[in-house]
Design a protein around this nucleic acid. Structure first.
Lengths: 339, 339
DNA sequence: TTACTTTGCGCAAACGATTGCATAGCCGCA
DNA sequence: TGCGGCTATGCAATCGTTTGCGCAAAGTAA
């Protein structure tokens, strides 16, 4: 009977003793599929319940080849989409019996040490859930020797899973929505130019526009997905070309910035004078103050797929990483003028 | 191209062999304060570096009385303040050498199983960071036998730490701000009536008002901190009494809801016709669209104090829980009319 | 009855660290 | 030279599991 803090930790030994069986029998009872007779199982289970026994996950992980711990690597919460995605992810992990361990990489601190510290716990997988992460951090993940699943971000190697929204589809959805409702001078506000997601969304948007014989009027990359960036982009964009009647933003927070700049600073009405679309569908988009028509990133589908991949990597054998695109969904609210 | 677990795990044994010393020597080299001669330390360190050795945290935790894992128990992200607090918390934990393990309790799922699963990993502490959590979950935490630190929420027992913002102070700060700028008919919009934070903020507000000979005109508890609640509260409140000229909300998201309802639905101007104050100071408060004057919850100070308490509980001995209030701070923006 | 497969169970060896205890070496000092 | 007191080291037990292996009991087929 080991005493830690003030709690008596009950071990297999204790249960075995009370049930009158060997430690192996107890362990097997808690291992699905292991050979135990109905009789022993019964006695073990009741002994375990009486003592309040639960297997020590640390000890278990020591002998087995997996820990059921999944590391989630994050950067700064600079975009309201991130906590949203993060929340969906952790809930799905729980459902799959995994425990999420959090690694936040600080732009001021060491970009790799926190990752190593997670690896010290022999996490099964690294899920990289941050768009903006130092290159060194990403490299450390890839070289860790542990399966890596990257969310919404592509990397040069082909040894990691990549799962992201179908950004081309999203861009096309935005384009058709705006064109079908009679808009003519359209612009795109992207985040960082060298971020895959931003680029793809823009490409999808432009290609679809071209397919409908409507060239893009303006395109700006702000460097980040932040509200502030959107605000500034809108101002510079609309002083350059006052006739723009529709703007597609690479994120909802950019769109919020655009909307506020347009309404508060330029005195235009949305959607009468100008239509704005976003992408993500964060909860705030539904707030009446914004009522943003947007392209939803299906966080739950993404999280589900991540879980699938974790299971895939967990069985031994020859493995192939995948790049998976998850279809997006148009959410219509009030920020786009109707035809 | 596929590597799953073909990474050779290097152990103390390997390092010991290469360095030509015993496993103990290696272990001691990595234990600060343990007696090792400069010579062996040197050889061990270089062997370790050559092999890329890092101690297995699981194995280490098995023998020691602590794991350096801290469980963070959360409910739904129904309030933008939560990810904000959460982020600060995890960063401070990292700084303190702790790894955060996330437990999210789903209102639809089992309220205690995820907590038990975290306890299976012998977490050192449970930090309860959610306001809205089923009572069973809270009870499970308290009975876990592991130190518990509750954030912004009080419980009936006195065996857990409680750390929260100084809500009375916050209420008083809001009151003086509004009174000093000449407001006369004031209202309070709270969250849930049986949530300590909401209650205290209201009390602080009312007491300060009374101290300045200005009785509270109206008070509403919405049941939650959500935007939607604020929206509805504002409508019902202002149809009841059109002369209200200042509203203090128990959270920023309530305040956003109030502002949008007031501006978009009732056609009033903020702050000319009505002043609104919030509490939390989430990043969104600074957006020009809202420009919310609010009371900041000092998330970093809170996180810092949590870390202090974790260290406190980590040394053995007779322990006393504390209830700590962290001072709040007035943040002035544009949602309050100036005297 | 014999022989052969199942099935269930216990022993003991991992897993990868830490740590109490015993000891070997060294130094200084009388 | 002998002794006491260090410090540095290694041995082996321990933490709480899982699991390969051997074996006894039981079931099946001839």
């Amino acid at each position: 009977m080991a005493r830690v803090k003030n709690v008596i930790r009950v071990t297999v030994g204790d249960v075995a003793e009370l049930a009158g069986v060997s430690r192996s029998a107890v362990s097997r009872t808690f291992t699905p599929g292991a050979p135990v007779s109905a009789g022993t199982r019964e006695r073990v289970l009741s002994a375990a319940k009486e003592l309040g026994y639960r297997p020590n996950a640390l000890a278990r992980s020591l002998t087995q080849s997996h820990t059921n711990i999944v590391a989630i690597v994050m950067g700064e919460f600079d975009n309201p989409f991130q906590p949203w995605m993060f929340d969906a992810l952790t809930r799905h992990l729980h459902r799959g019996g995994k425990m999420p361990m959090l690694v936040t990489v600080d732009s001021t601190g060491d970009p790799v040490e926190p990752i190593f510290r997670a690896l010290d716990f022999r996490v099964d997988v690294l899920v990289v859930a941050a768009g903006s992460l130092p290159d060194e951090s990403v490299a450390a993940c890839i070289e860790s020797g542990v399966p890596v699943i990257m969310l919404g971000r592509s990397v040069e190697t082909d040894i990691v899973d990549v799962v992201l929204s179908d950004n081309h589809m999203a861009g096309a959805q935005a384009a058709t929505t705006l064109i079908n409702s009679g808009h003519q001078r359209l612009a795109y506000v992207g985040g960082s130019e060298n971020r895959l997601a931003s680029k793809e969304r823009g490409e999808g948007f432009v290609q679809a526009l071209n397919g409908m014989d409507c060239p893009l009027s303006q395109m700006v990359f702000c460097g980040s997905y932040s509200y502030q960036s959107g605000y500034e982009a809108a101002l510079s964009m609309l002083t350059l070309d006052k006739k723009i009647d529709g703007i597609f933003c690479a994120s909802d927070s950019l769109a919020f910035g655009v909307m506020d700049a347009v309404r508060d600073h330029l005195g235009l009405k949305i959607p009468q004078d100008l239509s704005v679309m976003g992408m993500d569908d964060v909860p705030m988009s539904a707030w009446p103050g914004y009522g943003l028509t947007t392209i939803r990133q299906p966080v739950n589908k993404i999280a589900e797929f991540v879980l699938e991949r974790i299971d895939y990597w967990s069985v031994p054998g020859e493995k192939k990483p995948v790049l998976q695109r998850i279809p997006t969904e148009l959410i219509v609210r009030n920020s786009v003028r109707l035809g």
